[in-house]
Design a protein around this nucleic acid. Structure first.
Lengths: 222, 222
DNA sequence: CCACATTAGAAGGTAAACCTTATTTTCACA
DNA sequence: TGTGAAAATAAGGTTTACCTTCTAATGTGG
C-alpha cells in the first residue's frame, strides 16, 4: 500500500537522517529523537530495526548513518516533499510556512508515477520554496552549500538563498521581517558574540538574532 | 497527525459505507469486508469500534449504516478523493483508470486547507473523471442518478454520464472499447436476459456484457 | 418448519511503533 | 583518572488493525 514499500515512520527516520547528517556523518540518536518527537528509547529501537534491514549502519556511541539503500529512499522522500511544497506554494498559493507540514503528509502517500508527473507539471523546479535543492539523481545534494548569514561581514551585500529551519513559526517570523528567498540584504550592524544582526532590506530594516542567522544560507552579491 | 482526526482505515470503512449504502440503507458486513479485502471478522470488529464511536449504527443481522457524524466524514473523504482524481487526470495527465488508486492514497493525507485550495485551483469541478459527483455540502449526492445503460431501449441514443465500477481493469477495458464519459452511443442490439449489448459509437462499435452495462450511468439524448 | 448459509461474537495471536522505568556501558573532560 | 552525562540495553506495556479458529444465534428459502 505504501508507495515506496516503507512505512511512514520509516520514511520519516530516513529523511531526518539525511537532513541531519547528509550521508556523510553519523547522527546521534538523541538528535533524531528530538527531531522526530519520540523518546530516545523508541528511536533506538527503530534505528536498530532499520539497521537490521540494511538501511542504516550503527557506530555505537557515535550514531547512525544511512547506507546506500537508505540514502536512496531518503532522497526520494525529500524529493517528494519538496515537489509537493512547490505545488502547494506556487499553484495553490498556500502559506509557505505551513506548506512544509502539509507536504510532509502528502510525501508518504505519493506513488512514483505521480511524483514524476508532478515534477514535469511544475517544470522541474530546482529548489523548494525555502531554497533547498530538489534532488533528482542519486548524487544530488539535499542541502544548500551557501555561506551562513552569520558569517557575513559588515557592509557586505548578500542574497538569501535558503532557510534551513523548517519550523513554521520561524518561517512566519522571517516572512514578517520581510526576509524572503532571493532577497538581497546588506549587513548594517553586528555586535560581537551572539548579538543580533541589523540588516538593510530593499524597503526597510530587519534585526535578527545570531542563532537565526546561523540557519540562513546566502551567496555573495557582486 | 491525520488531517481529519480519523485513521486511514477508519476513513476507508466510512467511505465504503457511503459508496455502498449511501446514508439510506444499511450495508452488510460481508459486502464491506469484500470491498475492503479483509475478513468478515475483522470488518465486524472495526465496525463495532465505529459504532462505539458514534460513526455508524448497527442493526443486527441487517448491516451497518452511517450516522450523521459518520456521513460527514465519509462525504469529506469522497470529496478529497475525487478532487485529487481530477487533478491527477486533468493536470498531471495521468491515466484515469489508475488515478483512482493514487487519489485514494492522497485522500488520507490531505489537510482541509489543502483540499479547499485544490478545489479552487481546479475551479470547483462538479464531477470526478468517472462522472461521479463531488460533494460540497452535507446534502449533496455522492452518487449519480442516471439510468443504467442496461435499461436502454434498442435504437435509443444515450450519453454516458458515469462509471460506477472503480476497478482499474474494468476502466481500462471501457477505455479500450472507446467508451468515455460524455460520449453519446446508440444501442444497436441487445439480446434477451444477460446477453451483451452492441453499441454504435461516434467512430466504431463496441460490445459489452450486461453486467458491465449495469454499472454505467446514462442520460437520454434528445 | 427446519436446515443451512449468513451473521455475530468469543478467544487468542501477530506486527508496528510507540511508551515508561530501570540498569549498564562508554566516552569525554575536568 | 575518575565521574557524570549520553548512549545502549532490558523488560514490560499500550493501541490499532489485522489475522485464525471456533461456537452460537438468526432469518430466510425450499
Amino acid at each position: 500500500m505504501k508507495p515506496g514499500g516503507h512505512s511512514e515512520a520509516v520514511e520519516m527516520y530516513l529523511k531526518s537522517l539525511a537532513v541531519l547528517g547528509g550521508a556523510r556523518q553519523p547522527v546521534a540518536v538523541a538528535q533524531l529523537a528530538e527531531k522526530l518527537q519520540v523518546t530516545t528509547v523508541s528511536a533506538n529501537e527503530m534505528l536498530h530495526r532499520l539497521s537490521r534491514d540494511g538501511l542504516v549502519t550503527h557506530q555505537p556511541y557515535r550514531g547512525f548513518q544511512l547506507t546506500e539503500a537508505g540514502r536512496e529512499t531518503a532522497w526520494d522522500v525529500i524529493r517528494r516533499e519538496r515537489l509537493w511544497e512547490r505545488f502547494l506554494v506556487d499553484q495553490l498559493k498556500l502559506d509557505p510556512a505551513r506548506a512544509i507540514g502539509w507536504a510532509c503528509q502528502l510525501e508518504h502517500a505519493t506513488a512514483p508515477e505521480v511524483i514524476e508527473a508532478l515534477d514535469g507539471f511544475l517544470q522541474y523546479p530546482a529548489t523548494c520554496p525555502q531554497g533547498q535543492p530538489i534532488p533528482r539523481s542519486a548524487d544530488d545534494a539535499v542541502h544548500g552549500e551557501g555561506r551562513m548569514l552569520s558569517e557575513a561581514e559588515i557592509g557586505e551585500r548578500v542574497r538569501l538563498t535558503a532557510f534551513d529551519d523548517e519550523d513554521p513559526e520561524v518561517l512566519t517570523y522571517l516572512q514578517r521581517q520581510g526576509l524572503a528567498i532571493g532577497q538581497v540584504v546588506s549587513v548594517v550592524e553586528m555586535g560581537p558574540r551572539r548579538s543580533p544582526l541589523t540588516l538593510r532590506l530593499e524597503n526597510g530594516q530587519a534585526v535578527i538574532g545570531r542563532d537565526l542567522a546561523l540557519t540562513i544560507q546566502t551567496e555573495r552579491v557582486a
